[in-house]
Nucleic acid binder design. Sequence first.
DNA 1: CGGATCGTTGATCAACTTCAACGGTCGTGG
DNA 2: CCACGACCGTTGAAGTTGATCAACGATCCG
Lengths: 205, 205
Amino acid sequence: MYAALLAHIARYVALTPAETQAVSARFTCQTVPRKAHLFEAGQPCPGNYFVLQGCLRLYFVTEKGVEHITRFALENWWLTDYVSFLSQQPSALGIQAVEPTTVAVLSYQNQEALLAQVPALERYFRLLLQRTAAADQNRWMFQLRDSTEERYWHFSRSFPGFVQRVPQYMLASYLGCTPEFLSKVRAKANSGKATPGLAPKGGIS
Amino acid sequence: MYAALLAHIARYVALTPAETQAVSARFTCQTVPRKAHLFEAGQPCPGNYFVLQGCLRLYFVTEKGVEHITRFALENWWLTDYVSFLSQQPSALGIQAVEPTTVAVLSYQNQEALLAQVPALERYFRLLLQRTAAADQNRWMFQLRDSTEERYWHFSRSFPGFVQRVPQYMLASYLGCTPEFLSKVRAKANSGKATPGLAPKGGIS
DNA sequence: CGGATCGTTGATCAACTTCAACGGTCGTGG
DNA sequence: CCACGACCGTTGAAGTTGATCAACGATCCG
């Protein structure tokens, strides 16, 4: 049932068959269509989500109705609103499926119980969070160093194919710019007027 | 010797006296003057730093010589370059003391050994990293939602006193703008021409 | 076919940068 | 003790980047 999840855990820590069984028992499986919400702003984030198939976005909406995406999650990524998940207070964000998506859900209570039951998972989550911290550090470096245009090309080179999976306006929202601006960046590249060194290697595919 | 550190750990997990002893044995203490480096870009990040007294900055320098600060650490905060610390490859960043600073250092080898020796610390670090993830999520929300000016006022309200501890140009570097711009933002507030709702509550102290 | 959704394009506008010059403060050496 | 220089914040003019607004086109799906 949770083969991908168990394989992911096995990459970091070794579990006994009994522990593997205990892990499986604590998760629930959830499949949602495109645009469905796993939860919405205002309710406490109900769990920690592991993406088995599909794509999620973690986002919030400003007073003026503008949406901002703080994070995406693809297959084999974890996603949650850590602020709400830890405090169990109503969330300021929501998680929505960008594509039809299947996730393994670990509720807060189940995570607590599972970590008490299988201490090796403390290590699993620590290692994961360290990698998340490293990824976030890199993201901040790009944010501080590069222009929006550079960040777009860097992102589309770093995650080839991902750019095709999500609508342009979500990319813009994640990168912190307007859809119009991204559109103009792409137009510039296609007309051969791209700033040297910025255009995608081999053009847009 | 490491009272603040041990107290910090005790806020998350309970250790036996023997474990506490094992923890103390794995750390080294280091005191450096203002502007001294704990390590510089090019060398592998030698450890995970816990600030006992003072203030650190994690920063990098672009090809053109511009410095960008990705993170600060005050008393009772941990700081490291996670990318280099985890890979033990040369770092793209450096850590420098903003003030005379005393830190407890946990080398990569010692961290590995200590976690094997005192498994409860797996939980300690997991909890810490979760809180870091939550803080980072908030930081991204501010980054996406607010203007640089709003971020400055929000930051100086969130960390009262901190703005006085670090030079203005470092604040600018952390917030992702120029020192000149921050200077103008402050000038606007002092002359009573601040955008309503943006100025610090009760004026600049 | 008709409506909604999403990307594109162009004109105008605001936020922020760049560059250059000036001024205050602090520590250090003469 | 003073003077000098380094360091840091400030100010103003001009330039860039990216936002905003409005209109138009394409595509998809019911």
